[in-house]
Design a protein around this nucleic acid. Structure first.
Lengths: 339, 339
DNA sequence: CTGTTAGCGCGTTCAA
DNA sequence: TTGAACGCGCTAACAG
């Protein structure tokens, strides 16, 4: 059903019908009523494509999902997506999702989205320190908001967990519990957040006068298999750490499993801390101590910020750092022995 | 950059440029080369909205994500989404995702997508036996493919796991292991798959001459908290079951936790079986016996089937039932005692 | 108050 | 082989 046909049925011009429906004031009340009534009766719904073409906007926001071959995706993303989607839906904006394998195809997907005018704005997730996707968006002048920060030549709109503070706090807490040999299993260093987490960890060490030990630092991909290898190496060293700080819960749970396999009891002989507070963290045995992110809420804010950006709000007013409080459960405890 | 401007630069008509770019035969090779060259140089990319409007299609597929307030979404969905998205991307179709709270708003989201002509086809996930979303799509004559079957008045295009066979096989296996008191924690009965799973379970019981015992049947929501309550009730009954068949892995892991809390050892005193084979199934302690679904592959097929449907393939040729093989790990074993 | 005209960017007749 | 003209469905300037 189109505007034209509604107009024909009513013996009115398309223009009048359009204006009646869009609440213009220069339409007589009686016509307006007739139009609205007829539109409802025949179930008229405007064609968004036509509207979009006319307005010169896509009425949609794009997001790219980088997929890893052979790996389950981090449930994190789904929560973020749901948070974003719900809010965008309320703002009457569509969410266009592209799933592409991690790698060079990724940037192409951004280009397709932007240059084909399928999206008015882009949401970028899992930012890297040097992020060509962001460079591209800046160059093109496309509004965008990121989940996570990056090293950029001009300020950008972002929302991010304050991982540095969170890791500093967690490390300090472990030190309080008597730990001195605290290892960090970090994220791949190209991710901005990896640096933040490491910095927070180092901050706390420094404050306590403990030297950073490269043997207590490992890096891993953020998937289900990632954590185990790193943890295994760290735990089989001559003098193994008494505590393990992990890049996220998935990695932490992998570490937990390895510890069990090696016959190392948690938390008696080893404390483990995760990040994200996924549901499975609380359900693990022992329940995982972790730093909490409210992912769905972050998604919702991301959507709101995107709308604000589209509405012209300056990027400097769209920068949010979210607390990630430490949730102490059963996987952490006093350092073993008199260590 | 528009077609018009490319044409102006070249002193050609819009028509010629359009045809050169779209591979029409009635364009001289020299002009075609010039056009293609110029287009690439200025980075011309067709405006998809305009294309879509002209063609009368949206060049997009829609999917609705029903979200549960206060609950983490099932990671299942993300895998499905990635599978769908990757394949659709290759077919140059957009994926429009709507996240709406489970409930009445859901159908509205479908209407918005369809009636606003934002999607040419729809993918429906988590089908219900009587599914108003499907009724609506049939009424409107919109092409769609479902993940999961439903009771519909005419055949539909679907892909589904053969849960009946899978549950029958698993139950039979437990019987082989000597179990007689096998409980089922099923999905909410409005879901089509719930009936399939129960039927498979009953098939196997019947074949073994074991009567169905309503006290060994419970139903639960498919989220992280769901399984625990049902499992708790079943395991605290006077004569408790020796085996637990669960609607999915999330529920099974909840049951595993409850068993541990109640001091019931797995698999010595209780066998537990899940469904899906999420990564955390293999990582559980003991590792969970489960029925495997290749979710990402299912998503990819779903996308292919959607394209086929758009291409005019009949629904009867687009119905696939996927095997869900039993993966035996550590959570199942012989029935305890001489039971 | 209403209708006519124009144009968003593209593909597709139909003539030349 | 090329271009002019039209229409997809909608909104907006301009007349009347």
């Amino acid at each position: 059903m189109t505007l034209k046909r509604v107009a024909q049925d009513l013996n009115l011009s398309v223009t009048t019908v359009s204006r009646a429906l869009n609440g213009y004031s220069d339409v007589s009340e009686s016509t307006r009523e007739k139009v609205i009534d007829a539109a409802r009766r025949v179930g008229y719904v405007p064609n968004r494509l036509a509207q979009a073409l006319q307005r010169g906007t896509a009425e949609a926001v794009g997001i790219i999902l980088p997929s890893q071959f052979g790996h389950f995706e981090d449930p994190f993303f789904l929560e973020l997506l749901v948070g974003i989607g719900e809010r965008l839906h309320n703002a009457n904006l569509d969410l266009v999702v592209c799933a592409v394998p991690e790698g060079p195809a990724e940037l192409d997907a951004y280009k397709r989205l932007v240059e084909g005018r399928r999206a008015d704005a882009i949401i970028v997730a899992r930012t890297r320190r040097q992020d060509e996707r962001i460079d591209y968006l800046i160059d093109r002048g496309v509004p965008f908001v990121t989940h996570g920060r990056a090293e950029t030549r001009e300020p950008i709109a972002f929302i991010d967990a304050d991982a540095r503070t969170a890791f500093r706090r967690s490390t300090r807490r472990l030190i309080e519990l008597g730990h001195r040999r605290i290892a960090l299993i970090g994220a791949p260093e190209e991710l901005f957040t990896a640096g933040e987490r490491k910095a927070g960890y180092e901050d706390a060490l420094r404050e306590a006068g403990i030297a950073f030990d490269p043997n207590l630092y490992a890096v891993t991909k953020l998937n289900e298999r990632g954590g185990t290898a790193a943890a295994e190496r760290l735990l089989q060293a001559e003098t193994r750490p008494t505590a393990l700080l992990c890049a996220n819960d998935t990695v932490a749970l992998g570490a937990l499993r390895i510890a069990r396999r090696l016959g190392i009891t948690v938390p008696e002989e080893l404390s483990i801390v995760g990040f994200d507070d996924l549901p499975m963290a609380a359900q693990a045995e022992p329940a995982l101590t972790t730093m909490r992110q409210d992912i769905r809420r972050a998604g919702a804010r991301l959507a709101e910020m995107t709308c604000a950006r589209l509405g012209g709000t300056a990027v400097n007013d769209l920068q949010e750092l979210l607390e990630a409080p430490l949730i102490e459960r059963e996987s952490t405890g006093p350092a073993p022995g008199g260590a």
